[in-house]
Each structure stands twice: as C-alpha cells, then as structure tokens.
C-alpha cells in the first residue's frame, strides 16, 4: 500500500510540474510558434515571476526585502504584473532586433538577471534563496493538498489554453501568423507590426512569469537555480519543438512528455548507487539534447504539426 501511495504522490507532482511547464510552453508558443519571436531568455521571465510571488507571499524576514505574507492569489497576480512590465521594457528595446540577434539579446538579459538574483542579497537573499513560500490549501494535509494544488494548476492551464485557442483563430491570431510569415506584407496591409509583436512578447512572458510563480508555490522554495537557463529555457524549447511549434495542443502535450522523461530519469537515478547518481543527472541533459536532435532532424514539425487553414 505504501508503495502505491508513493507512486500516487509521484504522479501528482509529475502532473503538477508538467502542467506548470504547459503554461510556460503555451507562452513560448505564442511568442515563437505563432508570432515568430525567438526568445531564449525564458529563464529570466520565469525567475522574475518566481521571486515576485516569493517576496509577496512568504513570511516576514530579516534576510531580504519583504516577506509581505500576502495571499497566494495576490502573489500570482503580482508575478504576472512584474514579468509583464519587464517584458514590456525589454520588448520596447530589443524587439526591433530579428532572429539570431533577438536570441542573443534575450539570453543576454536572462544571464544578467541571473547575476542580479545571485548578487543582490537585500532583494533575493542571494544564494540562500527564499524558503517558506506558502502553498494554497496546505491545511488539507497529504494527499489532498497536493490534489488541490494540481487542480488549481490544471484549471489555470485549461483557461489559458482555451483563451489562446480562441485568440489564435481570431483575426488577431491571423495577423500574428502573417507577421511570422512575412512582416513586410503584414505591415503593407496597415497592421501595426511593432505593436503586435510587443503584445505577443508581453503576453507570452506573463505566462512564463506565472509558471515560475506556480513552481515557487509548488516547491515552497525559490533559489538562484530558478534562473538556470538549462531547466527552464532549454526544456521549454525542447517541449515546444517536440510537441509541434505553432500548435497549442502540441505545446501542452510536449510539456507533459518531456517533463515525464526528465523526471523519470531522476527516478532511475534513485535506483543506482550514489557514485553514479551525479553522473546520471548530467546524462539526462545529454539525453534531452539528443531527443531534440532527433526531432529536429527527423520530424521538425513535431508530434502534432500546426494546422494550416486554407481557403477552398
């Protein structure tokens, strides 16, 4: 019975984090899949969200600013607000860059943000991180608290999915895809290309920030590793590529698949002896990179390719 219970808790956490990544990848799909903005600074927006909610909701402390003990809902809204503001400022400056150059600029900003989180101890308590972040419905006790949190995540994921589905199939979504395919042509029909690119960038980044915030609440802790480009930026890109760029359903499915592979390899490391445990945790990075190569080369459109609507 204990083993079964353990597996159930493992499954709950798998679905929760998978769902959180689903939200992030939906944001990335809006930016890259639909509008064609190459953002590899996901970790930056993710970390802003994660730290915003941590500072807003954690108990008061001497170690850093705040600990304002606000309700979780305020924390989530706050993290969306701050990541949105940051995306607006960054977008205003960097979105005039295209392709590779935008990629370099976004990853540069994310790296600088990583330095800030590590060095500005008054704000983030530095390498020690912020513990004691509350998780909603914790008073229900195991396993009901976990189930409740999973339901919250899945509800948010579902709402964002529906909203994006509608948005993408609206005239707004068609303009976004037009911008992705041919910016000049879109501009020639009188569309405000710069404004729309900024919209997609800000909305997508808000979802990334929300994802970071939800993960903070799920882990009840946030540290500088939140801004590690590996576990957020890279995983999100692999998830979107595998699921099918340009397709919301693919984005969510890709998120669950890759998160399962990622955390299942962690499970495997528990079986191995201590000596090999460390090695394995690096090997799984290699494994994910390898999967990405195979998908890029053999099935670049992903598991669920984008549907292209054509007038008959």
């Amino acid at each position: 019975m204990d083993i079964l219970y353990g597996w159930m808790m493992y499954g709950l956490s798998l679905l929760t984090v998978g769902g959180i990544y689903g939200i992030i990848v939906l944001g990335l799909n809006l930016q890259w899949g639909i509008t064609g903005l190459f953002n590899i600074g996901i970790a930056g927006f993710f970390a802003v969200g994660a730290y915003s909610t941590a500072i807003l909701t954690s108990p008061a402390t001497e170690n850093h600013v705040g600990g304002f003990e606000l309700p979780v809902a305020i924390g989530l809204l706050g993290s969306m607000f701050f990541s949105g503001i940051m995306a607006f400022i960054i977008g205003k400056i960097c979105l005039r860059l295209r392709g590779d150059y935008l990629a370099i600029a976004t990853i540069g900003l994310a790296e600088i943000l990583r330095l800030i989180l590590k060095n500005e101890v008054w704000l983030t308590s530095g390498p020690r991180g912020i513990p004691g972040i509350p998780r909603p419905f914790e008073e229900l006790g195991q396993p009901w608290a976990e189930i409740a949190f999973l339901l919250i995540v899945l509800t948010i994921l579902f709402i964002i999915y529906l909203a994006l589905q509608r948005a993408i199939h609206s005239p707004w979504g068609r303009v976004m895809r037009a911008i992705r395919e041919n910016e000049k042509a879109a501009a020639s029909t009188g569309k405000d290309v710069d404004g729309l690119r900024l919209e997609a960038f800000v909305i997508g980044s808000i979802f990334m920030g929300l994802g970071g915030a939800l993960l903070s609440h799920s882990m009840k802790f946030v540290g500088p590793s939140a801004s590690d480009p590996l576990v957020t930026t890279f995983l999100a890109w692999v998830m979107l590529t595998i699921g099918g760029s340009g397709n919301n359903k693919g984005a969510v499915i890709g998120a669950f698949i890759i998160w399962t592979v990622w955390s299942a390899s962690e499970l495997l490391s528990g079986v191995l002896s201590f000596k090999w445990m460390n090695q394995l945790s690096y090997f799984r990075v290699f494994l994910i990179g390898f999967i990405l190569q195979i998908i890029l080369q053999k099935k670049p459109e992903g598991i669920i390719p984008e549907k292209v609507y054509q007038h008959k």
Partner: peptide, 12 residues
Amino acid sequence: ISSLGVSLMLRS
C-alpha cells in the same frame, strides 16, 4: 536551436 542543444550536451 540545435547549437543551444549542442552547448548543453557538451557541458553535460
């Protein structure tokens, strides 16, 4: 994208 993947594979 591929080179980003290569970078992490190399590091691992």
